[in-house]
Design a protein around this nucleic acid. Structure first.
Lengths: 190, 190
DNA sequence: CCAAAAGTATACCGATCTGTATAGTGAGTG
DNA sequence: CACTCACTATACAGATCGGTATACTTTTGG
């Protein structure tokens, strides 16, 4: 990837995320990247391709970020689940969040045959699979149910963060996940 | 509201929801409504105003739907909480769901001074307030925490439904809410 | 050294965008 | 009957959309 292409992708990512995909034109992207439209089209070919690479890059970065977070986390099964929420919290602080870029992109991309579609659904499937693997170390016979519940808490927290429904929803989700896991780890206490 | 204006609002609502706000032009709205652009502008003045009325109408309908659902629900406090999830489930079945229209609109409307912004945030605040009132009948001294958790489960379920992350997320959220409420109603069992 | 690659600058294309103007029709009302 | 209101039909304006064309310059690697 050439330096100009990198600047294009950076500018596009910021603008798409903050203003929405359809609201941002290629002229603006080129101007913000300090690049001519010719360069932009020489590197990417189309706006659609920029959208695809924006989402693919975001997906890749998030997966790397989360994987790294998990690699250095407490290996205890429930601690690893909580580490996911910690990673999301840290991510949301850095990438001043208007919510999940995949969810937001999905609001604008209706056609399932759009080349960006599998990236969006793929990330959600990846997260559900991750929660499922983590849940299997906690409640093997009901990992699916536990993973889905964690997924709902997590997605809900991202939305609540993006819409600023109440302060610090991700730490709140983490606490609730912790309480939930305590029930699964010690299911006979009730 | 004149018949033509109604058709415009109906067409706009469907198109905005399915394809996104910025992706739908006024020419298309007018054509789908079987109306000339002149009529459209005579009734609404601007596309922005159509967006505002689309969201306001959606908000109003949802609040009426949910209020009606609650009015006929089992008056037991935890049953009323579960009735919210039942209402969302029924709503999602009818309005073939691409997720929450407010969340989706928020992805496209970045400017907080946009006249549609308070409608979006207002609905989320209304939902949180509702959950808080319901939670006060269950755990008065910790209604805030319980309400926020219910909010996360609910929002997460709507997103999961829209993105089709796994089947029937709203009933799943309902079940988890039920388990959660059992802990609050009988907190001394553990 | 020299050719290819990567870039700038600028002008342009057809389509579509929101919004307006003009002219006329049909129904209902005081 | 005359007036208003809601509406149709059509054309247009200015801006912006995604994308292309032409000509030139800079950087860089074999």
């Amino acid at each position: 990837m050439t330096p100009a292409a990198l600047r294009v992708l950076e500018a596009a990512a910021r603008l798409f995320y903050e203003r929405g995909i359809h609201a941002v034109g290629v002229d603006l992207i080129a101007a913000e990247a300090g690049v001519t439209k010719k360069t932009l089209y020489d590197r990417f070919g189309s706006k659609e391709q920029i959208v695809v690479e924006y989402l693919a890059d975001r997906d890749e970065r998030w997966q790397a970020f989360l994987t790294q977070h998990l690699a250095t986390a407490d290996p205890a099964p429930s601690a690893r689940v909580l580490a996911v929420f910690d990673a999301s919290h840290a991510w949301a602080l850095d990438h001043n969040s208007k919510g999940c870029s995949m969810v937001n992109a999905h609001a604008e991309i209706s056609d399932p045959s759009h080349p960006a579609y599998p990236i969006i659904t793929g990330q959600k499937r990846w997260m559900l699979d991750l929660f499922t693997r983590l849940a299997e170390d906690i409640a093997p016979d009901q990992a699916g149910i536990l993973a889905r519940t964690l997924m709902l808490l997590h997605e809900g927290a991202l939305v609540a963060h993006g819409l600023n429904i109440f302060p610090d929803p991700i730490p709140h989700a983490r606490e609730q996940a912790q309480a939930l896991l305590a029930d699964w780890v010690h299911p006979d206490m009730g």
